[in-house]
Design a protein around this nucleic acid. Structure first.
Length: 297
DNA sequence: AAGTGAACCTGAAGGC
DNA sequence: TGCCTTCAGGTTCACT
């Protein structure tokens, strides 16, 4: 379930365990996910020490020694879990014996943690839309996955003026413009819908109609920028608690439980004070959009 | 160039 | 019970 807040929650959950850990072994259950794994993937990771983790848009970045970065995108259904987080003197053997191999477990990372514990980090991804890259720190900015990405919705650079400038003259529906990672990087279907509801704007409107004249900020572009930043910040805050179990996994997946205002609420009453509308679902560029036709205009 | 739609893949849920 | 269709949090590519 990975939009930006979910990816950030995964990062926050993994970071304390993997920071400072050394990768003692990597096993692949198949040669590809969405793309083939980079040549020599497992071999190149073995023996590397993980410094820290960061996130860009929906990408997880494991910063390794020798200025390398393990990039992980979770696609639609990717997840990480730990198994066998116990002390052992023989890392490789220990994990191999005890680890459960569930359907769609594709990558196994054996880690020697700074605490002296050993842990096995497992990447699972039923639909295999996720992928992993192994690149150099210097390559990051120019890599095709990152070069075109827009502003982080958590950044204070995201304001009404920027939205107006990005959207001015655009005829694509507002929803499509918000989902376009070249504009705002990390917004997905859920939070695009939620942000438009909070801002009271119709997803079908041409994106350019949000901008003021001459691409200046408008009341609506200001409202939309605030809505995006608020909903993302709130989701990260809420996600932190609800996904923690999922990271500690003992086999059971945690579920991201959230109160959505519109997403997946077709047929329900709009919850905006004073609005009597009913949430409807439409399809835009092949994706579901949920909104209230009464208070989003 | 910008915008739209199909493709990638598996599983869950609902209708009959 | 099973079989069929539709849908799912993302990205990329091919086409108009």
């Amino acid at each position: 379930m990975p939009e930006l807040p979910e990816v950030e929650t995964v990062r926050l959950g993994l970071q304390p365990y993997v920071a400072g850990a050394t990768i003692t072994a990597v096993e692949l259950n198949r040669a590809d996910l969405r793309f083939p794994f980079p040549a020599g993937f497992a071999e190149r990771l073995r023996g590397r020490r993980i410094g820290s983790m960061s996130r860009r848009a929906k990408y997880l970045l494991f910063h390794l020694d020798e200025d390398a970065i393990l990039v992980s995108h979770l696609g639609m259904s990717g997840s990480y879990r730990f198994e066998n987080t116990e002390r052992s003197e023989i890392p490789g053997e220990f994990h191999r014996e005890r680890s459960k191999n569930e359907a769609h477990d594709h990558v196994f990372f054996d880690l020697a943690c700074t605490s002296g514990d050993f842990a096995r980090l497992i990447y699972n991804d039923p639909r295999r839309f996720g992928f992993m890259l192994l690149i150099g720190e210097a390559e990051l900015a120019s890599h095709r996955a990152f070069a075109g990405l827009g502003v982080e919705p958590t950044s204070n650079r995201l304001d009404g003026h920027l939205i107006a400038r990005l959207f001015a003259g655009r005829k694509a529906p507002l929803k499509a413009a918000l989902m376009d990672q070249r504009n705002i990087a990390g917004l997905g279907n859920i939070y695009a819908c939620e942000a438009m509801w909070r801002a009271g704007v119709d997803p079908r409107r041409p994106a350019g109609s949000i901008a003021g004249s001459n691409g200046k900020a408008s009341v609506e572009s200001d409202r939309l920028a605030s809505a995006i930043r608020d909903v993302i910040a709130e989701a990260i805050a809420a996600g932190g608690s609800s996904l923690r179990d999922y990271i500690h996994a003992d086999g059971s997946l945690g579920y991201f439980q959230h109160r959505f205002s519109v997403y997946d609420r077709e047929g329900h009453r709009c919850t905006r004070a004073g609005c009597d509308g009913t949430i409807i679902r439409i399809v835009q560029s092949g994706r579901s959009t949920f909104y209230c036709p009464d208070c989003q205009s």
